[in-house]
């Protein structure tokens, strides 16, 4: 009994710690402007309102920022999956000289700080005309997305019984055929989970987005949202509405893949 009390007590504390900021974000976005600044604060809105959401789409460029982010993140995620899955399969299964060293390099690449790459990338992209370009930004995101996909999918491929591929080879498939017919269908959950993480990292990224894109029309969510803090006279209701909407896609995606979370986080999946 005492034990149960302790557990529920601890779980309640944990819930407050984890969920209160989320709750506060959502609830603030639903309060009218005057109520947001009130002290003492109201724990539930006295008057529920969607005015901030309306404002967000009518008076700010949030909609465009959101779509820009979506475009960049989807592009980089699909490119990273295509490139990374092939490489991961080779690392997991095929005979390549020096692949251990290559695998280690991949992990190292995954750890590369953005601050280390941003200066040369900016100089390089200027030369190539890739600044102020969604393609350019999504290419920059490949610097962490490809190593991430390779690192996680390599482990995932390694966990699929090799017998299946061998059976396919004997049944008459080529190596590529075995990958396509037998391995990839097994890997679908892992691919989805990995893709969602790659998307999340891109969705979060701030530095590259800030430096590589200066054109207002092309700006993505993270730098765009940070500008609300100064440009809108700190309208917290509006900002919290934007924060809530930016969180929504990730919440949905994570709900879908909860079962496979460990796959995405596991092994090297530790990008902050």
């Amino acid at each position: 009994m005492l034990r149960a009390l302790r557990i529920y007590g601890a779980a309640a504390l944990l819930l407050i710690f984890v969920a209160f900021p989320l709750y506060w974000m959502a609830i603030t976005s639903l309060k009218p402007q005057t109520e947001v600044f009130r002290v003492p604060p109201t724990w539930l809105p006295e008057r529920w309102t969607l005015e901030h959401y309306v404002e967000l789409f009518l008076l700010t460029d949030f909609g465009r920022l959101f779509l820009n982010s979506l475009q960049v993140c989807l592009m980089s995620t699909f490119m990273a999956l295509a490139v990374g899955i092939l490489g991961a399969y080779a690392l997991a299964r095929l005979k390549v000289r020096g692949k251990e060293a290559y695998g280690r390099m991949v992990l190292l690449a995954y750890m590369f700080p953005g601050a280390l790459l941003i200066i040369p990338l900016l100089l390089l992209f200027r030369q190539l005309g890739l600044t102020n370009s969604h393609l350019g930004l999504s290419l920059a995101y490949l610097t962490f997305a490809v190593p991430f996909v390779m690192w996680v999918m390599r482990d995932f491929f390694a966990s699929i019984p090799i017998d299946l591929e061998e059976a396919a080879l004997i049944d008459g498939a080529s190596r590529l055929g075995a990958l396509w017919d037998v391995v990839l269908p097994q890997a679908v959950p892992g691919i989805i989970a990995t893709g969602i993480f790659a998307f999340l990292f891109a969705w979060n990224e701030y530095l590259f987005a800030l430096i590589l894109i200066s054109d207002e029309a092309l700006r993505t969510l993270p730098p765009g949202m940070m500008r609300f803090v100064s440009t809108t006279d700190t309208n917290w209701g509006l900002i919290m509405a934007a924060s809530t909407l930016a969180t929504l896609p990730m919440a949905l995606a994570f709900g879908l893949i909860q079962r496979y979370l460990v796959t995405g986080l596991g092994a090297g999946g530790v990008k902050g």
Binding site: A19, M25, W203, N204, M225, V229, I239, S243, T247
Partner: peptide, 15 residues
């Protein structure tokens, strides 16, 4: 418990 991890960094910062 996973929410903070999946929440976009900018949303975290703002809240």
């Amino acid at each position: 418990v996973l929410f903070p991890y999946m929440m976009p960094v900018v949303s975290v910062i703002l809240v």
